[in-house]
Design a protein around this nucleic acid. Structure first.
Length: 247
DNA sequence: ATGGGTCCT
DNA sequence: AGGACCC
């Protein structure tokens, strides 16, 4: 589900691409399957729907996918089995070994559907895909309509639930996807590119910097030390710490 | 007692 | 090789 890195150039990229004052006419979508491995298992075993389900890594060593019910019980991403098994017993969690053949096949189906929406697809991980949407014309009245169309089609053809985020950069599209996933009132689709700045500010001030793509524990710590806690502040305080090493 | 990647230093 | 980040 993806790679990453942590360093000063990452910070530079993150901060620059979070700065919506660098307005371009570019538009990206990020489509992401919710709880991907669990959703794949549910697509073929309806008994798993509405139950707490966790999918384990290769040697059943740790949790790599969690249903919402399991997240609510406090199971963390990457949690090792020895910490997990008590919770599994106490709460009747269903723990499954991973089936990568199935997930790869489902991933291919999703990506094939997405190629009908844009010729510019970047498969970022087994369950995530960026779409470049610049200059594609107006097949949908708004990006949000397109996002709902993507959701509906993928659900109808694969029974997998996805969320869709739109933004002027990949980082913003990813953040939009995050919002679409966390805030049910968005109905699984969030477009940050067409959002009034007052609403954008309200949203971004409620999101911790650590939620931004590429900002992990280490960079969060540095940002906190600089008094930057929310994505709204990260945007405003953009000049801080953004000088690349070569400058 | 822990998975599998990528990218950077 | 080890660190940081991603699912």
């Amino acid at each position: 589900m993806g790679g990453g890195s942590g360093n000063s150039s990452t910070l530079y990229r993150v901060i620059m691409s979070t700065d919506i004052t660098l307005v371009s006419r570019q538009l990206f979508a990020l489509v992401d399957v919710n709880n991907f491995y669990v959703s794949c298992e549910r697509a073929f075993n309806p008994h798993l729907i509405n139950r707490p389900v966790v999918v384990l890594s290769n040697n059943d060593g740790c949790a790599v996918a969690r249903s919402n019910e399991v997240k609510a019980l406090g199971v963390k991403m990457g949690m090792p089995w020895f910490q997990l098994k008590d919770l599994v017993r106490q709460h009747g969690i269903i723990a499954l070994s991973s089936n990568y053949t199935l997930y790869g096949d489902m991933s291919d189906r999703v990506m094939t559907i997405l190629r009908d929406f844009s010729p510019y697809v970047e498969v970022y991980s087994i369950d995530e895909c960026f779409l470049g949407l610049q200059g594609l014309g107006k097949l949908w009245p708004t990006a949000t309509d397109m996002g709902q169309s993507i959701r509906n089609r993928i659900y109808q053809w694969t029974s997998l639930p996805v969320c869709v985020g739109f933004g002027a950069t990949k980082t913003l599209a990813k953040l939009a996807n995050h919002i679409a996933k966390k805030q049910p009132e968005f109905n699984g689709v969030c477009d940050l590119a067409m959002m009034p700045s007052s609403q954008l500010d309200a949203l971004l001030s409620a999101i911790e910097v650590g939620e931004v793509w590429g900002v992990g524990r280490r960079i969060s710590q540095h940002l906190h030390a600089a008094g930057i806690h929310t994505v709204k502040t990260l945007r405003i305080r953009q000049p801080l710490g953004c000088v690349p090493d070569s400058a």
